[in-house]
Design a binder for these strands. Sequence first.
RNA 1: GCCAUUGUAGCUCAGGGGCAGAGCAUUCCCUUGGUAAGGGAAAGGUCAUGGGUUCAAAUCCCAUCAAUGGCUCCA
Length: 600
Amino acid sequence: MSQPYEESQLYRIRHSAAHVMAQAMLERFPEAHIAIGPPIEDGFYYDFDLPRPIQEEDLAWVEGRMKEIVKGDHPFSVREVEVSEALDLFRDQPYKVELINDLVHGRTDENGKEIAAPASKLTIYTQDTFTDLCRGPHVASTKDINPDALSITFKPPAGAYWRGDEKRPMLTRIYGTAWETPEQLADYLHRLEEAKRRDHRYLGEKLDLFILDPLVGKGLPLWLPKGAILRDTLERWLRQLLLDSGYEPVVTPHIGSIELYKTSGHYPYYKDTQYAPIDVDGELFLLKPMNCPHHIMIYKSELRSFRDLPVRYAEYGTVYRYEKSGQLHGLTRVRGFTQDDAHLFVTPEQLESEYISTVKLAQYVMGTLGMTDFRARVGIRDPKSDKFIGDDALWETATKAIINACEQLGLDYTVEEGEAAFYGPKLDLVFHDVLKREWQLGTVQVDPNLPERFELEYVDSDGQRKRPVMIHRALFGSVERFIGIMIEHFGGAFPTWLAPVQAVLIPIADRHIEYLQGVVAKMRARGLRVEVDTSNNRMGAKIAMAREQQVPYMLIAGDRDVAAEAVSVRLRTDEDRGQMPLEDAIAHIVKVVESHALDL
RNA sequence: GCCAUUGUAGCUCAGGGGCAGAGCAUUCCCUUGGUAAGGGAAAGGUCAUGGGUUCAAAUCCCAUCAAUGGCUCCA
């Protein structure tokens, strides 16, 4: 288990399967050019430059042919060749020639990564009739690939730029998946199904949470009442938490003068993702792409004493960013979104402890929601890039403060170069969702640069004017994205305190409706969100529908319950709690809601 | 934005040059049923939009718009 993926048998199987796919593809498309085909998580792919678009029939044929080749028991043989021989071997394959030249001239490897030294020898692997430039490793023989644990038709073909560069040709990428046993393949396909069932776009519609309407505009979600109450509940909770933690709410407008963003330095960095400026009487305004400059101006509105610090301003700030149409995706990638944004202005001495308590707050918030599968990523600047402003000393102390905080918090963190914000280094909490995709949610950033640019000051105890440090932080990141991820995390079965409908009251016959309407009044008076199902369905159908909607509690009432001032309690988990006195049932649900419990 | 695919009722989808279809949802009627969907009827459509080919287009062709899977980028 501790063996790295790259050294595992599964990795070899997938790498070898990619070669088998390339062989079959070249049989189907003899004039195709082949690019690269590495193993990836859960499978492999190979990129091709094809003479025509690939059809489903082609994929089916190639998959069938792959299984034949695999059964053929062809050994994978490796041979070391001179550069000249390699160039000759692959003279009809321009992508391979480019790879060879980059390797021998010591520029980059097949992944586009820089390499330390030029390669003097190259290796080629051959199975059956197919030879590929490859560093290996491979399985001994094609028979080590289980034909019943192999599929390339499970996923549609995709476009991919040669070497990931949007200026280079668009190739056709064919994904495959391969496992050691058919059971593992079935398991994987089942996982994909499960991910589909949890997809927030599917659940968003099924649970009436939000819609995206082309007439409104793409990437601009509309929150339906049920989605809005969930969002509002989440926002109110965090707002109160922030008030309790010494934050002050502020409110800022949706557009701002372009001069503001030129001063902050945002303008050149965000140019590509901004909407065109709005001309108002000859003055240019931008739809707000971020909130920080506005909060800075609030800080600047009066002279600050060291006694005032830390100043903590929080806002649900809606920002607008132009995203290319192809990358819009449900709630997780939109063009107008709301950050749970806050900016803390602290003295250099306060930085570390304030930073630590901010990260702790983020951990508390995620812990309460039961979303705890995180990794910590420290993003520092890439010294070779010009994407980062400010001088080295400021960056160094800011970066040190973050690393120190991580150490003190005992976080398991990685440091990644080039991942910083343009104004300072940051710690991102990267969440792993059910598909094992990574999402940056919370971020806590140290910014020594904007205080410089805006000439922020405070008067210290010695009467001297000094420069504060800023912390930019968001715990959810984007409320839209966060809720999208939350929908998938819970599969729509939200903790009771967040569930749009917390209980459905189900009468067994119409004569029980009146009793349940009394129950509704009582529960609503306790702040619960409940509904009576007065539809003309049988009880079984009402239960099925409440289950579909993932309503946590179903309170059923018939003659026996009315007579006993009780309800029969059933949970969305199918657990039957039996008859409970009405007051007990209500008290239990109120307790679950107020404690933000994850269990019912 | 780029490559590929798709767009038919509110939703999920069938149909594929010659009368517009089903299930669920909606409305109404019957049924009043004790823990995963009782029965019947009605209503619902410029087949994404615009142009073209044809005696005839939802169906074939072109363009546009949107969605989906990827790539690149990102909260």
